[in-house]
Design a protein around this nucleic acid. Structure first.
Lengths: 184, 184
DNA sequence: TTCACTACCGAACACGTTGTTCGGTTGTCG
DNA sequence: CGACAACCGAACAACGTGTTCGGTAGTGAA
């Protein structure tokens, strides 16, 4: 690793991070090669490895500034009265930094799976919502958005349930999920 | 591509799919090589490429059976009365097929990013929830679960917002999100 | 400005992975 | 049984990785 006092270090690391972000917007992260990165950044091969162990290392190092920003926005709006997650500032920030965030949420490897599953769930939810609309049941948020939210939240919730090591049984999970999305 | 009438074809494809699922449970998807897969499946190199163009192709082909199962469960429970997404059967199914689903939701590439961001959001949400609990505000779902849900749902929602090409402004997005998670 | 330092370069390296080809072998279906 | 197709496995070029090393040039401190 390198010292922080040297301009060359800052220049090189910035160039590499920006090159990575630029490439991520064009192709899948796991298809981006170190070669691509150093070509785009105009940095020598050995120099890359002098700063970062791997491609993942570079990605994670770029992350710190990003999360620090987000944390600051949440901090500013935080209070006892508003929502648990005060997100106005965050959404504005994402809108301004659109390309970067779009890149970070882009398809990457196994994401194909969760994405496909999510789309399938959303389609089904949308179908149900339309039926209810036809039956006169209304909701302030439009159908597509609700369907996407329900499907995405469910995927995320299942993922958490798995990661957390099954803190509750399937029925408990189903009930909990229902309670959390009751407003949707 | 190969004919479906031949037992050898079915055997080979199953072996490759199972090998991939097995490997995914041990290491990151994008670190699994075709070499790993054919070694584990005891299949010749050229045979792999006779069936699938790439590793992604194999993954996606394995997906069809999985989504078909899930779709069936949802179909069974579907009705005009219950929740928009009837998930009891799905949660049971995931619990039974635990290893496979755990693998599919496991860390993979750029997921490191969304995961890190999600954890940060969850921590903040948890902090707020605890404050409110101290102020006497109660909720039927426990704090950790709520925090994880809120953070995960937010990440998913932002991802959808980006993918969908900003169907609403930042303020609209923030309001919509707040409305959807009102019960959490 | 000088000077020691160190980041950078770039070529070369061994190594692993990819995707293809091809001749030979073995299993399968009719 | 016999024709056919799937499988094998070795070999291949092409590419990406991560490391090494001697030389160059920018940088911060005296």
């Amino acid at each position: 690793m390198a010292r922080a006092h040297d301009r060359r270090v800052a220049r090189t690391q910035s160039a590499l991070q920006e090159a990575l972000f630029g490439l991520i917007q064009v192709k899948r992260y796991d298809k981006v090669t170190v070669q691509d990165i150093i070509d785009r950044a105009n940095v020598g091969r050995s120099t890359f490895y002098a700063h970062f162990d791997t491609k993942d290392d570079l990605l994670l190092s770029s992350l710190e500034r990003l999360t620090a920003d987000i944390d600051r926005f949440l901090e500013e709006e935080s209070g006892l009265e508003g929502p648990v997650l005060p997100v106005r500032g965050l959404f504005h920030h994402v809108a301004e930094q659109q390309p970067v965030f779009r890149a970070l949420f882009g398809t990457s490897g196994i994401d194909l799976v969760t994405r496909a599953a999510r789309d399938m769930l959303a389609e089904r939810a949308l179908h149900t919502i339309r039926e209810r609309e036809a039956a006169g049941i209304r909701h302030p948020v439009d159908a597509e958005t609700r369907a996407a939210f329900l499907a995405g939240s469910l995927m995320t919730f299942v993922g958490w349930w798995l990661d957390a090591g099954f803190p509750m049984g399937p029925d408990g999970a189903a009930h909990t999920f229902a309670a959390l999305v009751a407003a949707a």
